[in-house]
Design a binder for these strands. Structure first.
Lengths: 244, 244
DNA sequence: AAATAATGTGTGTATTTTACACATTCAAAA
DNA sequence: TTTTGAATGTGTAAAATACACACATTATTT
């Protein structure tokens, strides 16, 4: 049985013995990558090659390297799979059940990423890399504990998108209010009132009219806006108030 | 350089090779244990014995054992130090910077715990185990990256306590509204209006009058209430609304 | 018995949310 | 060219919620 690290951490050498002992686990990151396309919220998955999970879908992940920060590992996976850098990425939760991985103890840190799929083609070298609508995922089986991880991240997104301006990461730089509303409706799986939605976002005062209009829409084009981060930082309210 | 786990996970045997390879790290849990006493929010810390952090304070933690779930490891640490079981404990964030630990790569999963210190004596076997007020911690140095971990958990608590009924875990089963308000004021570091606070909590409709009054107070005693979890579950609102 | 200090209850105002209606503009169809 | 359709863009009233604030009540202490 391992000695207790914190109860008797007398010397650095003693600690090093502990740290380098058998008391170690494999550590991975798994990315839940969301995209928004055709008014649908989608998740990027790859097919599992493992016999045990034959035909099932899994999140994109990899082992964390010994000299690699967690965030960097997640960025690496993301870049590797999508070719995209400088995208939204945030740690959500760590899953460490002993038997969650058939190959042994693997603890995984789940990340949520939001990317703009506009003008983005997946690298088809990975021919089993596909977008799956959140809707369709209800009926699909996922390998490992990836369904639990995905659900955690999806619920995290649903909550988070209501209290922080994350959603814009899923849209092109310039977007119409209709697109923004479609996004929120897709994420929250609700219908929202168009006028109140508009009023809400204008009142928060971080949308800037870029003076352009939608192109190639089969109806009256809407104005295009961009999200102004500085304005948001200046005006954001600190006190949400108690309520539950 | 390690092979990519997800790009080529052909066989279980191959995976096992990866998982059991050098590609492993030490994993620990660290608990930010909050208590509420003398109208003050406090954190339980131990003094570091490490030379590098001589005299500094650190969180309570330990290495996760190879056959131990993360949550269980945190529970174990908590039980070991406080003697308490069945207490509030929730995972907050994982800290995995490569050089965060002087003894080598140690990734740690931070947990936040809320305990009721009423009628609770610390096990003085650990004579360097002490409560520290959140206020006093501003001026104290902490070892490792524990200040960052503590701050993350404190901010997490401040946000969380406003949207979920966590606070009750810091109070005795029966409490007065004044105690509850003092708790919120301590956590949020604000003054709240007594009448509106009262109205707020009564309107949420999960406080049950236990028909008793405060004892041994030097003024008119207040009524005692308890938190009714079932009532909360029934009445809680689902839609907080967009706003940031 | 008086003074003190906290509990317990409203009430009016401001702010925010919600429901809802109509005119405008562009594109496509006639 | 005109008409029609469909979505954009704006406003207003009612309802709900948050906020500021005052006074009577009750137990303890002097």
């Amino acid at each position: 049985m391992a000695k207790d690290l914190s109860l008797h951490p007398k010397t650095l050498k003693g600690l090093q013995t502990e740290v380098q002992s058998i008391n170690r686990v494999a550590l991975s990151v798994d990315c839940v990558i969301f995209g928004f396309d055709e008014n649908t919220l989608k998740v990027l998955l790859i097919r599992s090659d493992l016999k045990k999970y034959k035909g099932m879908w899994t999140l994109l992940g990899d082992l964390v390297k010994p000299d690699e920060d967690l965030d960097n590992a997640a960025y690496r996976v993301l870049k590797q799979r999508t070719g995209l850098g400088d995208v939204f990425l945030e740690q959500v939760k760590t899953f460490g059940e002993v038997s969650r991985h058939p190959a042994g103890r693997v603890v995984t840190v789940a990340y949520c990423s939001l990317i703009n799929v506009q003008n983005h083609r997946l690298k088809k070298m990975d021919n089993e890399l596909h977008w799956h609508s959140v809707e369709s995922l209800k009926d699909k089986a996922m390998g490992f504990d990836h369904e639990a991880i995905y659900l955690t991240c999806y619920q995290w997104l649903q909550k988070r998108v209501q209290e922080h301006p994350l959603g814009f990461n899923l849209l092109p730089k310039k977007f119409s209010l209709r697109e923004l509303q479609n996004l929120y409706e897709a994420i929250l799986n609700t219908k929202l009132d168009r006028r109140n939605f508009r009023k809400k976002f204008f009142s928060m005062d971080f949308l800037v009219d870029v003076g352009e209009e939608e192109q190639n829409v089969p109806h009256r084009p809407g104005r295009l806006y961009k999200f102004d981060f500085e304005k948001y930082e200046k005006n954001k309210k600190e006190w949400p108030g108690i309520g539950f």
